[in-house]
Simulated scan of single mutants.
Amino acid sequence: MFRKHHQLTHPVSGDIPPLRRAHLARETRITLIDDIDGTEATESISFTINANSYEIDLNETNATAFRAAFQPYIDSAQHNTQQATTDSQAIRECR
């Protein structure tokens, strides 16, 4: 996951007269970069597989493709809470 940071800044230092300091401003922008194709991303998607959590930044097109790829598996899967997942793992390990 890559995030590009832009800083549009007027430096504030002791060398600047106090009257000018009142007019200075700082703006920080964070631009999400799509982890697949390097374009500007529109959202971050978090997901977990095999007890490993991931987050990926995607643009609208790639986010739609990501969800479409997972949809058949989601439709066939059971929704588990964290406790149920832990219990299921413990049962499998005991067998």
Rank of each mutant, 00 (worst) to 15 (best):
L32S: 03
C94N: 12
F70L: 15
T64L: 01
A84Y: 01
R26L: 12
L8V: 13
T81A: 01
I91G: 00
R20F: 06
F2P: 10
N80W: 10
M1L: 08
Q83K: 01
A25C: 04
S44W: 08
P72E: 14
P18D: 15
D57Y: 06
I33C: 10
A69G: 02
S53D: 09
Q7F: 05
K4A: 09
F66K: 00
T86P: 03
A69T: 03
P72D: 15
G38D: 11
I45H: 03
R92E: 08
I91H: 04
V12N: 12
I30D: 10
C94H: 10
D75R: 12
L32Y: 10
L24T: 07
Q7N: 14
Y54C: 02
R3C: 02
A90I: 13
N52H: 12
P11L: 13
L24D: 07
T42W: 00
S44T: 14
R29H: 09
A51C: 13
F47R: 02
H10N: 14
Y54L: 03
T42K: 06
R95C: 04
F70M: 15
A22E: 08
P11K: 06
K4V: 14
R29V: 09
D37F: 12
Y54W: 06
P18G: 02
S76G: 14
Q78A: 06
L24H: 14
A84W: 01
D15Y: 01
M1C: 03
H5E: 11
T48Q: 03
I36C: 13
A51M: 09
T86R: 05
S44A: 15
E27R: 14
P18V: 13
V12S: 05
I30W: 06
S53H: 05
I74Q: 08
H79E: 05
D57I: 11
I49F: 01
S76C: 07
T81Q: 04
T42D: 10
T28L: 09
Q82C: 01
M1K: 02
R20G: 00
N52K: 10
A68K: 00
T42L: 02
G38L: 10
S44I: 12
T61E: 13
